[in-house]
């Protein structure tokens, strides 16, 4: 029974959070000058940089879509992102999976029909990995797309949740995620309409517990949305002030 106690009987997790608490979330828009839009997103020790290029002419003729823009997502993991330096190949399945998850999520909110025969590039770079990569990528992309001024119908916020010792827990960090029995559920929602655009889960979770876990994750998404919204508003205010001068 030497398994690590992820949730103490006192109700604290290994990093001192309670079950329903997010990690410290910090984000910033317009961090890169070259890109059309960019954002830096930090949730606990997971740090992601997102850069948007476009809409622009498609690189490949085959990617040209006549009625809407083509969304291209590239996700890269920095070799220094984990404590053991490891280079990942481009074809890494998990990396491709995350990229395609992000692409699918945003295809439903980007108003792509405004830009026919063009391409929108989303470049994501994971600088530091402490669990919850998918949610961090999605949230960073939302901020970067807003920064780039690409029309979207709504925010997309993502959050993960798991289930430890009969308790749903919000926002798993790396230690919690890598534990053998913890199910890891990531949900991406449009907070205003409440629509779910992505739902993925690893490991097993009893069906009766799914609802609780999803509810908690959705609650987390709303909290994240509030944080992101204030950042967006502040950034916009800054811009307005700059232009006003």
């Amino acid at each position: 029974m030497s398994r690590q106690e992820l949730l103490s009987p006192e109700g604290l997790r290994i990093d001192g959070r309670r079950a329903n608490e997010l990690r410290r979330t910090v984000c910033k828009q317009s961090v890169l000058t070259q890109a059309d839009g960019s954002a830096y997103y930090e949730q606990g020790n997971t740090k992601v940089l997102a850069a948007i290029y476009g809409p622009r002419e498609p690189r490949l003729r085959s990617n040209t879509l006549n009625d809407r823009a083509f969304v291209n997502v590239e996700f890269k993991v920095a070799p220094f992102s984990t404590n053991e330096r490891r280079k990942r190949s481009k074809g890494d399945r998990r990396i491709l999976e995350i990229a395609s998850a992000v692409r699918q999520t945003f295809e439903s909110v980007i108003v792509a029909t405004v830009y026919p025969r063009s391409q929108i590039d989303v470049f994501l770079h994971l600088l530091q990995d402490d669990g919850g990569n998918v949610q961090a990528c999605i949230n960073a992309t939302t901020l970067a797309l807003i920064d780039a001024g690409i029309p979207m119908t709504e925010y997309i916020c993502a959050c993960s949740a798991g289930y430890i010792d009969e308790t749903p827990v919000l926002d798993l960090n790396h230690t919690e995620e890598s534990s053998f029995e913890t199910p890891d559920l990531t949900i991406a929602v449009m907070p205003r309409s409440g629509k779910v655009t992505l739902l993925q889960m690893e490991s097993r979770l009893e069906i009766t517990r799914l609802e609780d876990t999803m509810l908690l994750a959705t609650e987390g998404c709303k909290q994240i949305q509030r944080i992101m919204d204030s950042v967006v508003r502040e950034n916009t205010r800054d811009l307005v002030e700059k232009y006003g001068q």
Binding site: D15, G16, R23, R24, N45, N83, E84, T175
Partner: peptide, 25 residues
Amino acid sequence: LRSKSYMKKTRKGNVVRVVTEHYLR
């Protein structure tokens, strides 16, 4: 209040530095 501190841990085999968050309440 949530602040952060760093703790080092070593794992089996090679010694690595693990950084985890530590929230103070």
